[in-house]
Amino acid sequence: MTSTLTISRLTKRFQGVEALAEVSLDLGPGMRVALLGHNGAGKSTMMKIILGLIPFDEGEVRVCGTAPGSGQARMQVAYLPENAAFHPALTGEEQIRHYLSLRGESPRRAMELLERVGLAKAARRRIGTYSKGMRQRVGLAQTLIGRPRLLVLDEPTSGLDPVSRRDFYALLDGLAAEGAAILLSSHVLTEVEARTDRILILSQGRLVAEGTLAELRRRAALPVGLTVIPAAGAAEALAAALPQARLAGDGTLHLACAQDEKLGLLARIAGLGAQVADLEVIPPSLEDIYSHFSRRDGQ
């Protein structure tokens, strides 16, 4: 299958400073990829290059087989900017009708799109009266116009409440199932965890990590945390049996071990029998993995 988006050795400089350096990426139909990085890591710059809004210095970018920003590419790419903004004097419906016309679709479909993002009731109110989350939904509605083959979403869920976020990801799943490739950036790492096929981590313009969450987790090899809750009166004995554990103020014991030592340690704790009331295993969170990769490069 041909890829929807191919980037090879992309480099972009702003007045001599490298904003992106030798970034390569391949995105096929139906793939959902999350782009993570600090502010200024180059996420928005990369998106703007893919959209053809700004030129780049070196490398190659192909969007749906053509140059980024060409008429052909723009027909097939939908974009949601960070903090989507619209003219405050227009209503949500008027704005979406206009976007439909620009894409050569019937403006009559505006209400249907606004219903899909849960904005039907406010459709005839001016955007100036909308909350940030509602403006973001107008932005989402316009990305659903036509059948985009590539969706570029810059922090799409900022300003959305948890329920809207879930609805939004459900929408994305539907689009991906229909074959759209999705590139999204986010700061909300935990939600990306469950909803994307691949994660890219950008740090100071360089791609420092790429892969599925399981791959990144393995590569980072961060310690696993264990919390042992002792049975009544057994705290002292348990602490003596597990000398590497740290006794917390609430009477629980905290341990950390490398991935490959995890099973052995678990067996030891299980062997302590009735002294243990409960046991929790805490794998490294995406936040931990993310800071592991982005910090490594920053040093």
Binding site: L53, R74, Y79, P81, A85, L102, R103
Partner: peptide, 9 residues
């Protein structure tokens, strides 16, 4: 509003 507009065909 300009960046979004300019990504339209």
């Amino acid at each position: 509003t300009l960046p979004l507009l300019l990504t339209y065909p």
